[in-house]
Design a binder for these strands. Sequence first.
DNA 1: GCCCAAAATGAACAAATGTTCACTCTCGAA
DNA 2: TTCGAGAGTGAACATTTGTTCATTTTGGGC
Lengths: 324, 324
Amino acid sequence: MSTHASDKNLLYKIAKAYYQDELTQHDIARRFGLSRVKVSRLLEQARQEGIVKITVVPPPGTFADLERQLEARFGLLEAVVVSPSRYDRANVVRELGQAAADCLMRCLKGREILTMSWGTTLRATVDALPSRNWPHMTVVQMAGGLGRPEAEVYGSDLTRRAAQALGARSRMIPAPGIVASKLARDALLADTHIAETLAMAARADVALVGLGALTPESVVLQVSSLLTEEQINELKALGMVGDIALRCYDAYGRPIRHEVNERIIAPELEQIKRIPRVIGVAGGTGKYESIRAALRGGLINVLVTDDRTATRLLGEPDDPHTER
Amino acid sequence: MSTHASDKNLLYKIAKAYYQDELTQHDIARRFGLSRVKVSRLLEQARQEGIVKITVVPPPGTFADLERQLEARFGLLEAVVVSPSRYDRANVVRELGQAAADCLMRCLKGREILTMSWGTTLRATVDALPSRNWPHMTVVQMAGGLGRPEAEVYGSDLTRRAAQALGARSRMIPAPGIVASKLARDALLADTHIAETLAMAARADVALVGLGALTPESVVLQVSSLLTEEQINELKALGMVGDIALRCYDAYGRPIRHEVNERIIAPELEQIKRIPRVIGVAGGTGKYESIRAALRGGLINVLVTDDRTATRLLGEPDDPHTER
DNA sequence: GCCCAAAATGAACAAATGTTCACTCTCGAA
DNA sequence: TTCGAGAGTGAACATTTGTTCATTTTGGGC
């Protein structure tokens, strides 16, 4: 329903008064002898008819629209896309870490429970954390450690360093991530401290996780002492494309049923999904399938990645399996 | 204070979410893990920094900006500018009448007291009134009549016709506008009905008035039976440039002190100024000085005129005497 | 490490805006 | 004329947004 000229003129004058002169609808109503409700409706009409145009200017050199598409497509709370200056693994990881740290800091206020796994990307994230003094925050280790206990890269190290940077309390899991048998795990879970720590991780406000993939660097694939070649092949055969905190998932982000699950010290995927904010950080070559799966399965709701991966993720047709 | 790229990116995403996706600030806050207040502030910043641009598109073929300038310059509630198809007096008056009728109808709701003077322009206005059924409205004659009582153009005629068109009650002044002596006027004002009608006019919600000018067609100048040539010259000598409902004013819209005032049956200019909405209708050649004076003196707060006069009114330097 | 000024924060409040719903008005048909 | 459908209206209510102010946090100097 279009209106004739004199009506448009009124719409224009009211819109000018509202958006330009910043009068309130109440004032405009009094001025023109209309009711406030009517002014509200006329403004609505002015927007409808394009008399008022609101544009949001994309800041140059950012990937805001790519991010918005990712958010929309995969139902994310937020997507963060970085454009690495070089695409070698070390640099991608460093820049992802920086972006993830920014993104994390933005949503922390200093009184939350933060849980985190470990991995190269998260290490870069921790390295990029600014220093704070947040005694009311707790950083909780999400999964048991891997590798030899004296190797500081995995296990409690990142949690400790993150807590230190933020001036927060920390809560460690003094146990390996994969143990030799279900029995061994049950024994460890009988330990009050370990059980409570896992419970705490499960009810964290924010989780910060890396997305493992089937690349040669993969942590999971390297612990040959506990996972045999055969078991790894079984997992692959069951469709495994990646893991979050040792919990393996298939191409749709569904947990893989396998005996190995019973030997892992970490929250289950279903528990992780219940955490309000799960920030997944991953990018670079080889992570694509794992990220896609985590997105499809709704395992994470914030994604920090690089522009190439982002573009690739959007390059596919829509997919009915996508959950969120 | 400018911000760096990643901040702008956040501003952009929030602005998009707010203005484009129409999420509430509350939702956006939850989504990005911020407080609502912060989102409000970031949006403010986004507008400041020009990330959000709001434009109001002027509808073609109207004089909205001319109107807005008039409003701003003379502190009007509203200005209405028409562009007559031809500039002969008859046509200008007809189109002014149409516009004035629209403007009047827009601010009437059907329960007000409307008071009106008379004149050719107001006649055109009344002719353009649509038909309504507003039994709770009252149309009050503002000034006594002029000319021979049997001539229907002046006096009560317009008031009656306006009331009829609107289905409203009417209230007439059964008396001439200018009488022979102060004594005669006092006698008339002793009449309860006349006195009450004038009082009612003075507390009207809306007044509709023509602006008289010193043109040959002027009604005031033609009533030679009551105003002598000499008196008219005296008025001119005192600076008279026009009148509203027989009340003469000078170039700054100030009332002119003269004996004639005491013989007029109409509210004083000061009383008219107190009416919340005084719509002045005038345009075409010769009305300029009178309009300018009425605007300067704040005698009217809504002006309906033609584009040439409007342009001319804006063409002058600012003037410290202007009141509103 | 400690301290301070300045900036940032969010809870509580105040204002502005949007929405609903019962009612009124208008217009056209009978 | 009367009648009724449909549009239009604004009071009351609900929601959203803006502002203030006491407090916290931050960054920088020592």
